[in-house]
């Protein structure tokens, strides 16, 4: 279903009237980021896979296409999105996946959403339909505005169509677990990072360190032999990705803390869960935001207040002054009237 003409109309009307718009796909990720003040712009009706030829390793679909529909089409052809995007609800769309820019357990080894974006068709704030990038993997004509859309939370334009790189599904995927204390688990992850293992996930819950290998049958078998540990038939990967593990339940604020993989322990009060070989640490804590952010920055990373906030305060780590100015200018270059998702990422942006 092609709703481009209607979306274009809506944006032009909004531009003429100066009405801000809150872009909405499946609606499952409204918790992420700040509150948006404006009229809803529903994109989920603009849907359908535009082209998918497995041997080209690219899928192109309209932004409102359900992620589940695309992933089913990929699975039917033995392929997948290597970044394992979280859905956070049954209605998740391709556009929402790109706008949120969130990746799942395989991210450190399989790349991020942004890495896989090859091209976009978008509506900018002047009501122009523009295409950037394309369907090929190597493309350096013009600035890379398509990857810029990944994680921009819809503040730079309305995504109409996205082309994403896909990969063959690994023939084999196996999980092992180890009972380890936090120090030993951290050391083990650093050690694994230095070995030629085809890792595709790690998760430490404070007691057990899970590790997933993927690849060819013999490659995985050889890797498992060198790893040791206890075989786990069904690893916690899906539950971690969709945040259905018990750790993610309850009301305490949930922080997403992104760090260099080998950064020392956070040493902040609260329960924690570690993924991405140490590079992603989740923390449940009532500590003041300031303290969490300071600690994350001191360790070379940044902290996002992921859940358990009212969307009115800052959610993302504040930007250095010069970088913030640059953000404002980039926003103005694409959305001069400030129509799209005002305040969703930062107040005033």
């Amino acid at each position: 279903m092609d709703k481009q003409a209607e979306l274009l109309d809506r944006v032009r009307q909004a531009a003429a009237a100066g009405t801000p718009l809150c872009i909405r796909g499946g609606g499952g990720k409204t918790f992420y980021g700040r509150h948006c003040e404006g009229e809803p712009l529903e994109v989920s009706g603009h849907r359908g896979i535009v082209s998918y030829e497995p041997s080209e390793l690219v899928v192109t679909a309209r932004a409102g296409t359900p992620l589940a529909e695309i992933e089913t089409a990929l699975a039917d052809n033995g392929q997948l999105f290597p970044f394992e995007p979280p859905h956070f609800g049954p209605a998740a769309t391709l556009g929402g996946m790109v706008a949120a820019g969130l990746s799942g357990p395989r991210r450190p080894w399989g790349g991020s959403v942004r890495d896989a974006v090859l091209g976009v068709k978008l509506l900018n704030g002047k009501g122009e339909v523009l295409r950037f990038g394309g369907q090929v993997m190597k493309n350096v004509a013009g600035y890379d505005l398509s990857r810029l859309m990944a994680g921009a939370l819809g503040t730079l334009g309305v995504l109409l169509e996205v082309s994403v790189k896909v990969l063959p599904r690994p023939a084999e995927e196996r999980t092992r677990a180890f009972e380890l204390d936090a120090g030993a688990a951290a050391a083990r992850q650093i050690e694994w990072g230095r070995l030629p293992l085809s890792l595709s996930g790690t998760l430490y819950d404070g007691e057990r360190l899970y590790v997933r290998l993927c690849g060819s049958a013999q490659g995985v078998a050889a890797g498992l032999e060198s790893l040791g540990g206890e075989e786990v038939s069904d690893g916690p990967w899906r539950e971690a990705r969709e945040q259905t593990l018990p750790f993610f339940q309850g009301e305490a604020p949930l922080w997403r803390i992104s760090l260099p993989a080998a950064a020392p322990a956070l040493n902040l009060p609260g329960a924690s869960l570690t993924e991405w070989g140490g590079a992603l640490r989740w923390l449940r804590t009532d500590l003041p935001a300031e303290l969490v952010r300071q600690r994350a920055a001191a360790l070379g990373g940044h902290a996002t207040l992921f859940r358990g906030h009212d969307g009115r305060g800052e959610v993302f780590q504040p930007l250095a002054p010069a970088l913030r100015v640059l953000h404002m200018q980039v926003k103005r270059a694409l959305d001069p009237l400030g129509l799209f998702n005002p305040g969703r990422m930062y107040a005033g942006l």
Binding site: D144, A152, G300, H302, A322
Partner: peptide, 23 residues
């Protein structure tokens, strides 16, 4: 002097790092 990206796998704000590559 502006710093884009971090030694972590992502950074807050727009992906201006992607924009710098190939500019």
């Amino acid at each position: 002097l502006i710093e884009l990206g971090l030694a972590a796998l992502d950074s807050p704000g727009y992906d201006l790092l992607a924009l710098m590559n190939g500019s």
